[in-house]
Design a protein around this nucleic acid. Structure first.
Lengths: 209, 209
DNA sequence: AAGTTAACATACTCTGGAGAATGTTTCCCG
DNA sequence: CGGGAAACATTCTCCAGAGTATGTTAACTT
């Protein structure tokens, strides 16, 4: 995220730094064990800076969620519009999805480590509402895949016993990346591409000979 | 777990109650937000009872991990021995795996919510070692699937570009259950069976027509 | 029936970490 | 060049929640 020329949503440079650092910490320790001091000291500064820009720890986590979701949507949406066979489109979407997960790994993993739970407990009502929107967004996102699968079945290019289940299976396999993938700075873009391709291929073509 | 006639590992009834309750709480709030008092009050008792049987919160979480792992192994191991084609065996293993996840849901979800992270931070050295064994056990378990896939490729009944990736894809799709599945007490065994079957089928046969 | 111990409940301590209050510096704008 | 006001740093408060220390009860043993 930090290597983007343009900052999302008019966020100043310093704020985005905080968000990036937070994502790193959330990834490393999990959102609850990660401390605001952790985030600050990773930035070489102190709490003061963080709390000057965010009302609470949850507020940061929400922003991390938000940007994680944005990254996925921004990548997938352009692919949806294209007018190609559904099986081909689904494959491209799957590959793209996997690539985004690896590219924005700290964000995606932070989300994965906090899904639902973290924010339901404490957090203000407003935060709860925002969280609701994020969950909606995630569902919408999943629906993009679901719709393509449905289209593919109508076209005859795809075939599954249950559309909803197939969507879950596909995204489950891809999101599993968040569990076992580990960032290696030396890793080339080609290697990542290969991972994404293999993963997507396997789910779409199956394991059977 | 609690409906088993025989208790695992000679654990007394009261202790197993604590473990079950803890799994429930860990599932609901996540292992860090879940409080020992939560566990106790779910049991209608107090901290005293819990700390009489466990040295720490981590100790309980480890035990939950342990039993989650045991449930899976106990179910899969018998299937490994059978002398049938690998594609068929893999399907059965996948279905069984999915069923165990649903049957022991609080345990599996607790594990999923704490993988790696929770115990790396604090926890004593001894606990860290035990955790290491559990991670080994999980890897061993994954290897069971990997081996069957490899066998299937030799046999010619299975075919994937990358065995390791296929294993990840399969288990990722199945473990995704831990994210989206929700317990419904009224749900029949047949419904669960259908979910397990559909999920396993989709990954093994693929989405493509 | 007195002593011992397991199985808890009650009451306490103590610390990490969130968030607030307050100080300090830098920058910007008239 | 003076006077805000961001953008932080420093310092302080405060409490939830883990773990402990100490009662209390019941059951078991000899």
């Amino acid at each position: 995220m930090s290597d983007l020329g343009t900052l999302p949503e008019g966020k100043t440079d310093s704020v985005q730094q905080i968000i990036d650092a937070a994502a790193q910490c959330f990834m490393a320790k999990g959102p609850e064990k990660a401390t605001i001091d952790d985030v600050a000291s990773l930035l070489g500064s102190t709490k003061g800076r963080v709390y000057h820009h965010f009302r609470s720890k949850n507020a940061i986590l929400i922003e991390v969620h938000n940007q994680a979701m944005q990254s996925l949507s921004n990548t997938i949406n352009p692919l949806i519009a294209r007018d190609i066979p559904a099986d081909q489109k689904l494959l491209e979407m799957a590959v793209a999805h996997a690539n985004v997960i690896m590219d924005t790994f700290p964000f995606q993993r932070s989300v994965r480590l906090s899904v639902d739970i973290y924010l339901l407990g404490s957090s203000t009502t407003e935060e709860r509402e925002i969280m609701g929107k994020l969950i909606d967004a995630r569902n919408q996102y999943e629906n993009l895949f679901r719709d393509v699968i449905r289209t593919g079945i109508e076209e005859g290019t795809l075939n599954v016993p249950d559309v909803a289940m197939a969507t879950r299976a596909l995204l489950g396999a891809l999101n599993g990346l968040g569990d076992w993938y580990r960032i290696r700075p030396d890793q080339s873009q080609e290697e990542r591409e290969a991972i994404a391709q293999n993963l997507a291929d396997t789910v779409i073509h199956g394991i059977k000979a």
